[in-house]
Amino acid sequence: MKTTMYINNEKFIAGMTMKDKAEPELNNMALHVCKDPEKVLQNRRELAADLNIQVKDFVCANQTHSANFHKVTLNDAGKGSYRLETAVEETDALYTHEPNVLLTSFSADCVPLLFFHEESGLIGAIHSGWQGTVKEITLKLFEHLKQEEGCTPGSFHVQIGAALSQEKFEVDEDVYLKFKNLGYAEEFMYFNEQTGKYHIDNQLAVKRQCELAGIPAEQIEIDRTCTYMSPAGFSYRQDRKSGRHMSFIMKKIGQ
């Protein structure tokens, strides 16, 4: 199974599954876009085995491009892991203090963001497509964690996963104006006079939101793999029927 491992230390493990011709449905991890749910579960079981956990330890959300987030407790373990109907409803970000619970995010061009807080051990996963970025889900969650969970921003470490590159993320003026109205994303966009389209770097816009929350730039890593151009990428823009990557993070037991 192709997996990009971003973090694997004594406290945390985090990564992103990639497209893999050797796996069922090319290693699709999403039940909401699949031909055969059992094949997706087979892929999830293989990932779980690699992580020394079980699929019942996954927590999955029904992502709706919202700015909603959910604090995961042990009672949430297994939600959405075997069946779509049990997923956390209308949520695009998950966070928890609990160990051995795998927080997940599904994407095929959208920006996945994984993070941990060194001091408190809190972890989280965010799904930020362009709608989530415009709604500032990342900034809103980090502000919530600072205010409600007592997290100091300097202790966050962030990994932004593979996503659609600026070259391939072309939009019309309506989407460009939504980003422009944020007031801090102008430098992450350019206009292509030949096509009449705007190009947006959603990864850097999300990174800026992290910085606005007070997270040091040197503690934010970005995987610049383009999900459209890479053979290991699932791209909704390229193929409306594409599978999905699973980005994941877990706090190891005993930490």
Rank of each mutant, 00 (worst) to 15 (best):
Glu148Val: 04
His97Arg: 06
Gly124Ser: 01
Phe156Lys: 02
Glu89Val: 11
Arg83Gly: 05
Thr152Lys: 03
Glu149Cys: 15
Asn75Ser: 04
Thr91Met: 10
Val111Ile: 15
Ala163Met: 03
Thr138Tyr: 06
Val101Glu: 01
Tyr82Glu: 09
Ser81Val: 10
Glu167Asn: 01
Glu85Gly: 10
Cys110Pro: 13
Ala93Phe: 03
Leu141Thr: 06
Val88Trp: 00
Leu141Val: 10
Ala162Glu: 12
Phe115Thr: 01
Asp92His: 07
Pro153Ile: 02
Ser81Glu: 11
Gly150Asn: 12
Leu141Asn: 02
Ile137Thr: 04
Ser120Arg: 01
Val158Met: 10
Val88Gln: 00
Ser81Ile: 07
Leu94Cys: 08
Leu114Phe: 06
Thr91Lys: 06
Lys79Leu: 14
Glu89Gly: 05
Ile126Asp: 01
Lys140Trp: 09
Thr133Asn: 14
Gln147Glu: 14
Leu164Ala: 01
Leu103Ser: 05
Gly161Thr: 07
Gly161Asp: 07
Pro99Lys: 12
Thr96Asp: 06
Gly121Asn: 11
Gly129Phe: 00
Ile123Asn: 08
Pro112Asp: 09
Phe115Val: 01
Leu141Gln: 12
Ile126His: 09
Gln147Lys: 14
Glu119Ala: 14
Leu145Asp: 02
Glu89His: 02
Lys79Gly: 08
Phe156Leu: 05
His127Val: 11
Phe156Gly: 06
Trp130Cys: 15
